[in-house]
Write a protein that binds this DNA or RNA. Structure first.
Lengths: 236, 236
DNA sequence: CCGATAGTTTGCGATAGCGCAAAACGGGAC
DNA sequence: GTCCCGTTTTGCGCTATCGCAAACTATCGG
């Protein structure tokens, strides 16, 4: 069992209110693992034997319908937990987790959760907060899907990604993991074709610069404007 | 401060693992109140000064956009909590809660939450479970909005309502609180017109019987079939 | 009992976005 | 350096669903 450096994770919201000694104890129950790019960390429907904390890299959580369609539930950034099925009372993972970049995670056995929560109640409180925040995001997403057109939804999605995982460049903000048109379509409830058309349009207006699984927001401010306008005209 | 009968609420998931004495102590911090039909319990954006447990009646939680459009986040049934903004770290209510029927609720001051959680850690664990369940429902809803057509989404919504708040009749299942076409539209991301058309169609096929703010599922089984089919034909 | 009001139904264009198909493109593997 | 494969782009017809408008109808208050 690899020793994990507490200083790397002590500041995370998950461990707020946890003493260094307690943190040490918590980390002793975890092991770490590396997942190469495009490898599955767990599959939807599998028994939830572990829960995870992402240290490095990026993970995509996606949900699949019986007929094979997928949506992206969220992208996990370093410092975030995922696969918390047990905390919410699920026996199986409700989604599939794939490393979209070479990633390093901490892994706890699900069985350790009740004990940890009992010894360190703030873990439950902290987890409640993060799950609550995700619930709010989901509601926001539902609101957007109900009331906005595709272009605005894509704008919102990109802005969110930029905020969560944006790398500042001198000429814009780059989303710093590989993401395809298809992925964005699955985040916004549309098709890769429509996303491609939208990005092409934006590119010709200098709003973004994009390529194969790569997007740079060149003019975030104008994208914010796009995201917020209700339905008026906008052709050049 | 009205005395609340513990026997009425002892069996709720929220209080699982809480001793009768503890429950008594928890309830002593609450007061109860009655909200008449169509009255607001709290407004989106208001300071979250209380959290609630519904005893009788039904409550609609709805989220409004800056431009005035609304979606229904969920319907609250007796025994469920709502307005848990503080537990998830929000200072203001993210949605508006309206009693859709004469309703009775228990009300705790937000300020009591940290103390209650400290004394009774299972409260946090139980709340985590319910919030987690709601998160999953939200994801399911997003999945549906992304991959299904309106008719299927409406079918799913009605089936869910029937399961949560259905009253068994000899000739079907009635949703036992007033719900309009508009409400269903706001649950499924469509317009009241489209919902009306769909229900009219179903009514003529004997699937449902409906009227002003009233819906009876006459043939739940066939509605399940409707909800599940992907996109094939179905005209009589 | 009757009128006012909120909810419902329905018709009819308009259109955003889908779905299919095919071509162009870019990057990595060998 | 070249080939191959996954990704992206783009054209084009189609249709589910919206949006507006107007008529209709229960229900409730008085």
């Amino acid at each position: 069992m690899a020793k994990v450096d507490t200083s790397l994770v002590a500041h995370l919201p998950l461990f707020a209110g946890v003493t260094p000694e307690a943190l040490d104890e918590i980390l002793r129950e975890a092991r770490s693992a590396r997942y190469p790019k495009n490898s599955a960390i767990f599959e939807q429907g599998a028994d939830a034997q572990s829960f995870f904390l992402l240290l490095h890299g990026h993970v995509r959580a996606a949900k699949t319908t019986p007929t094979g369609e997928q949506i992206v539930v969220r992208y996990v950034a370093p410092g975030e937990t995922f696969g918390l099925a047990m905390a919410i009372g699920a026996v199986q993972y409700p989604a599939t987790a794939i490393a979209v970049d070479d990633s390093v995670v901490l892994i706890w056995p699900t069985s350790a959760w009740p004990r940890l929560v009992e010894r360190f109640p703030s873990l439950a409180a902290n987890t409640l907060q993060t799950v609550g925040a995700r619930l709010q995001e989901s509601h926001t997403r539902i609101l957007e899907m109900s009331t906005q057109q595709v272009e605005q939804r894509v704008a919102h999605a990109l802005l969110r990604l930029a905020k969560q995982s944006g790398k500042k460049l001198d000429h814009g903000i780059e989303i710093d993991f590989p993401i395809s048109r298809q992925d964005i379509a699955q985040m916004t409830g549309t098709t890769l074709h429509t996303v491609s058309r939208i990005l092409s349009g934006w590119e010709s207006q200098g709003l973004v610069e994009s390529g194969r699984q790569r997007i740079i927001l060149r003019d975030p401010h104008r994208i914010v404007v796009l995201a917020e306008r209700s339905a008026d005209s906008g052709a050049a």
